[in-house]
Simulated assay, not measured.
Amino acid sequence: MTAPDIDAVAARLRQQLADHLATDGWLRSRQWRAAVEDVPRHEFVPRFYVETDAPGLTTWEPITPELIGVEEWLRRVYADDTLITQFDGRDIDWTDPKPISDAHPTSSSTLPALVVRMLEDLLVDDGMTVLEIGTGTGYSTALLTRRLGAGRVASVETDPGVAARARDALTRCGYAPRLLSGDGLRGYPGAPPFDRTIATMGVRSIPSAWVEQTRPGGIIVSTLRGWMRSLGLVRLTVGADRNAQGRFLTGEPSFMIARQQDAPESLGMIPAPGEGDARDTGHGPELLTMPDSGFIAQLAMPTARCFTLPGDDGAPATYVLDAAHGSFAVLAPLNGGGWTVRQGGPVRLWDDMEKALALWGAAGSPGPTAFGLTVTAGTQHVWLGTPDGPNWKLPAAA
């Protein structure tokens, strides 16, 4: 296939992608549609990995034009999928790509539906400036630059190698935003305040630098997440007092967590059999993974992680461990049905979770869009209903 053929096929696939995103309701404005139709995503992901359906360990397979052919490669590029470009913070050896298992994705080109949804939710107008945290492959940076112009977009990428590849791709495509390789949680030091700030990775709480570098009246769009799950997409407005407040737009989107805020490698000590105080509970471990109750559990236990292993009697048990406080909760099934919980440490994790569930249930068990976030210089808390309603403190930003 010749280069002109690639350009023609790619242009047709971009049109199809724009149609798909518009039909699904993610692409709503003509300006962002023009950007999706113009920006060549294939220039930003010349090689990538996608998850397979193989049983057992999660496995990713390499996708390159040489391995599957140019037309199929282009089709995969312009599908509404996330394309993985890095694992465990290390560059991929593309001289002889092999399937990868038991690895942790650390950079990607996010599925276009989420990228476009966040760009639309950013509520930009002509002439505005935008700070993007997390350049990644540079694809979303290119969309922003196509929409607003090079002098109005700045982007920060933590990983130097990822940043260099994004810079090369942006230059090759004729886009010239301001690019910085550095700690994205520190924003873009020295720049004038931006009208909008958008983050393409998950954070446990909103860094103060993002608020300080967004003008009063400006908007921040980011995903919040914890060590158990994502909380969702939030949009904040910065006030004249340099505080910020807003609501969750959805509880669904999930980005890779910022590397600076990732969970420690140690899960904490698994409690010995019989350690702690045991009691019956009306809540089983499924509430940790269900969409709405999982949101509540993450708020109630912000520094905990959970997993399942054989328990004291050999039956599967769910462990909730909080390495920050040395606390634990162990859920095990009862022979006659129901569950027992065994807790220990300075924080009663399951007690806190049940209290949060009760508050949520009393409010009618609403979805994440009923919650909001308030950010001040000293604290950040998620609230239910109104800022004066039940609230849960987020971990301090790094």
Rank of each mutant, 00 (worst) to 15 (best):
G336C: 04
A297S: 15
G294R: 08
G246F: 08
P291D: 06
G284W: 08
R342I: 11
D277E: 15
A304G: 05
A272R: 15
W339H: 12
G282S: 07
R259C: 08
P285M: 13
G276L: 03
R305D: 13
H325W: 01
A297I: 06
D262G: 14
P273M: 11
L309I: 09
P302E: 10
G294T: 07
G251K: 07
E252Q: 14
L334M: 09
V320K: 01
A297W: 06
L267T: 07
M256G: 04
G311H: 03
Q245R: 15
S254M: 14
G311R: 07
L288W: 02
G337E: 04
A329Y: 00
P310L: 04
G251E: 07
P310M: 05
M256F: 06
M269H: 09
T303G: 03
G336N: 11
G276N: 11
I296H: 09
H283A: 04
G246N: 10
P285W: 10
Q261A: 09
C306K: 04
E252I: 13
T303E: 12
G246Q: 05
A272V: 11
D280H: 11
W339Y: 14
G344D: 06
D241F: 11
L321E: 00
E252S: 13
P316A: 12
G268N: 02
D241Y: 04
W339A: 07
P310E: 05
R259L: 10
A300E: 03
D262R: 15
L249G: 04
E252L: 13
I296W: 06
P310S: 04
A315C: 03
L288Y: 00
A258C: 13
D280C: 02
Q245W: 06
V320A: 01
P333L: 04
D313N: 12
P271A: 13
A332L: 02
Q245C: 11
D292S: 09
D241Q: 09
L267A: 07
W339R: 02
Q245D: 08
P316W: 11
P310V: 06
M256V: 14
G336S: 12
L299N: 03
G337H: 01
D277F: 09
N243Y: 00
E286W: 13
S293G: 07
Q245M: 14
A278P: 03
G274N: 04
A258N: 09
H283D: 08
A263K: 11
Q261N: 10
G294A: 13
L287I: 15
G311F: 11
T318C: 14
G314P: 01
M256I: 08
F255S: 08
F328H: 04
A304S: 15
